[in-house]
């Protein structure tokens, strides 16, 4: 811990918070028994869980990032050129994951109209608000990849 920059500590916090809060949300969504509830009820459950997850991550980030920032000087909070380079490299990794997710979502929306067939992914994983969830999971995964890549670069002193 002593050998970490403020930016690295902040990245660790974001990674762990995202993994825990959205990991829990993912588990809850897959645990919904679609045979036992109506589609509208399932959507209500999902929206409730999603709102709680988003609210929780905002609260956790605000509280803990403020605590981390209080222990640092203004320069440390802003980060130096190495922090910025690490951030740029990690953003690139996250971008690729998000792009794949965006294309998957587009495919899910367009393919049934283009070739007149129901998407196969949807039949394997019948989630409520299916297309929203592909995009949401792609976003969460891209964030996890971004934070994890940052942590790896910091730990390896790679740049």
């Amino acid at each position: 811990m002593l050998n970490m920059t403020i930016k690295e500590k902040s990245t660790w916090l974001s990674l762990l918070a995202t993994l825990y809060i959205f990991g829990r949300y993912t588990f809850e969504v897959f645990a919904i028994d679609l045979a036992a509830v109506s589609e509208l009820e399932a959507i209500d459950i999902v929206m409730g869980n999603l709102s709680s997850a988003v609210l929780l991550i905002i609260i956790v980030e605000i509280i803990f990032q403020s605590i981390i920032a209080m222990a640092a000087s203004k320069n440390e909070v802003e980060g130096d050129e190495r922090d910025k380079l690490i951030s740029l490299k990690a953003n690139n990794s996250g971008y690729w994951v998000l792009s794949v997710g965006a294309f998957l979502t587009l495919g899910q929306l367009l393919l049934p109209h283009a070739i007149g067939m129901e998407s196969s992914l949807k039949s394997y994983y019948p989630l409520p608000l299916f297309e929203l969830h592909i995009l949401l999971f792609a976003f969460i995964l891209s964030e996890v990849v971004r934070f994890a890549h940052q942590v790896v670069l910091y730990r390896k002193d790679a740049v």
């Binding site: 050998n3 970490m4 920059t5 690295e8 320069n75 440390e76 980060g79 130096d80 050129e81 190495r82 922090d83 910091y154 390896k156 002193d157 790679a158 740049v159």
Partner: peptide, 22 residues
């Protein structure tokens, strides 16, 4: 020089080449 201690450490180890400015 306006960087973090970890950046100086990475420079000394030869793991990071600083910008011309630094």
């Amino acid at each position: 020089v306006g960087v973090t201690r970890q950046t100086i450490m990475a420079i000394e180890k030869g793991k990071y080449s600083p910008s011309l400015e630094v």
